[in-house]
Design a protein around this nucleic acid. Sequence first.
DNA 1: AAGGTTACCTGCCCGC
DNA 2: TGCGGGCAGGTAACCT
Length: 282
Amino acid sequence: MPELPEVETVCRGIAAHIKNSSIKSIKVFNPKLRIPIPKDLAKNLVNTKVKQIKRKAKYILIYLDNQRILVIHLGMSGRLQIIGDKQERIFYHQESKHKKHDHLLVEFSNGTIMVYNDTRKFGLVTMVEAHKLKSHKLFKSLGAEPLSKDFNDEEFYQLIKTRNKSIKSVIMDASIIVGVGNIYASESLFRAGIKPTRLANSLTKQEASKLQKAIVATLEQAIDSGGSTLKDYAQANGASGYFQHKFLVYGKAGKPCKRCSGVISKIIQNGRSSFYCESCQK
DNA sequence: AAGGTTACCTGCCCGC
DNA sequence: TGCGGGCAGGTAACCT
């Protein structure tokens, strides 16, 4: 589910509740995620204090004061919910009352409860030593961060200009550029006026520049809207995002293009749906 | 090495 | 009403 804007929104949402608070207890109900939750997670993290929360690609990084990082990925259907309300907390202390697919519960010294729920189990919760983060298998081959200060059109052009595959699959490739998933790929390509089937190495420098700016603008606007809620995704406080109301092409097959009033097309690329306008995108 | 395909898992929606 | 197929915000193990 969650692409960069949704993960960023969740990070901001949990930070307000858990930053500078200590982990009081950790309960694992089902460790069987994409990477199994480590058995010694509680042993290593209970009584440590949350120093800061960062996003890296689509990963949530919770930095603790013992040089370890709690790493969370939401996969397609993961949710990280903050239970701040007193009544709800009491409810959540009863295991029989947990929701289906709640896999992990973290309780903090300030009373906050954080629950990880993931229907499809494509996500993960693990622990990494801070000094090993960059060399860790999950992080060592990640590409450019589109919202970093030094990411620009020239760098983007260099990254894509030799790739002999569709531009859509290139911008969704986390070893090239991180954070762009199936929704924001289609939305960014529409804004840039580039057809998703174009080979990346066929883009001119001008087209690459336009696409780079479209990606950044789309992601930033989605963050401003609290992300996109289709089905599973919710902010940490349980609220829906509302960027889905601003989609220009995603999920709009057969509907009129907002720019030219032509009909939005849907095709399958690399097993994923792509949405675009035949006449606006070249 | 780069690019394409398949699998992982659960739930929902659609057509027969 | 029931069942099978297809599809869903991601990633990575395979294959060529």
